[in-house]
Amino acid sequence: MNKALVFDKGNYRFVPTGVHRYSAGVAAQPGYEICRVVFSEPVPLNEGFAIIQAVLEAEERPLTALCACELRSPEPANAADFSSFNETYVQTLSDWGLIKGKHNPVARCNVSPLVGAPAEPSFYAFSYTVETDIEESTFVISGSCEVPEVDGDDEHLVVAYRDVSPQGMLKKAEWVLDEMERRMQVLGFEWADTTATHAYTVHDVHAFMASELARRGAIQKGLGWHLARPPVVDLEYEMDCRRILNERVLVID
């Protein structure tokens, strides 16, 4: 879709996708900003939702203020297992009132660390809207891999399918970078507006660090390279980016 929709109950706009598990990105409405909380260590999904609820209640924000989730998975899943996980995840969002018609407005990133992956799907971080006096805009762009967001088995749509050569990884990166730019454009932003950009892959990114990432202006603030795989088998490269002015770490005892 080429335009953002407003999610009034959360005080943010979002970019719809062709799937029900997440939006392509979110941006705070005027009078609000997006804040980000990183867990000191991954927290299992249900426990994470409970902590998020407690944080939102403590700040007198509705559950619908949740606008982005960053997840970590044990290992890349096949299509059937990934679908099953998403049903459970989306059900909680639905219970919280975080569904707008056929759309899920909440942005998301979900990857599997090569080393130190959690034993079960877990939260790494989350973002939510709060009232603010600042006039700066804030946004979060969801993680995107080298494939369009469509339901069902879509391996034939994967860019450079199973090609992890330097040429194959370049094609994947080009596609993902184009998608990042498209999502930001829909919300009215560009690379110069970002405060953080992340890449998630176990493959070498140096071959296109200068020619693509730097040339486009994607890493003016540096690049957070996570040694991790996308959440589905046979996907090799994921990116996300954001503009957040207020972040904190929540220590888990």
Rank of each mutant, 00 (worst) to 15 (best):
K3C: 07
L5G: 02
L5R: 12
V6L: 14
K9Q: 11
Y12Q: 05
F14H: 07
F14P: 12
V15S: 01
G18N: 09
V19W: 00
Y22K: 10
A24K: 09
A28L: 11
A28G: 05
P30G: 03
E33C: 12
R36I: 06
P44C: 11
L45W: 03
G48N: 06
A50Y: 02
A58N: 10
L63D: 05
P74M: 06
A79L: 15
S94R: 08
S94W: 08
G97S: 02
H103A: 14
C109P: 00
V111A: 08
A117S: 15
S122W: 04
Y124T: 09
Y128I: 09
I134E: 10
V140W: 05
V150A: 14
E155F: 12
E155H: 15
L157F: 15
A160H: 04
Q167E: 15
W175P: 00
L177H: 00
M180C: 15
R182I: 07
L187D: 11
E190N: 13
H198W: 04
A199C: 12
Y200G: 00
H206V: 03
A214R: 06
R215I: 00
R216W: 04
H226S: 09
L227N: 11
M239E: 06
R242H: 05
E247K: 09
E247T: 13
R248E: 15
D253V: 00
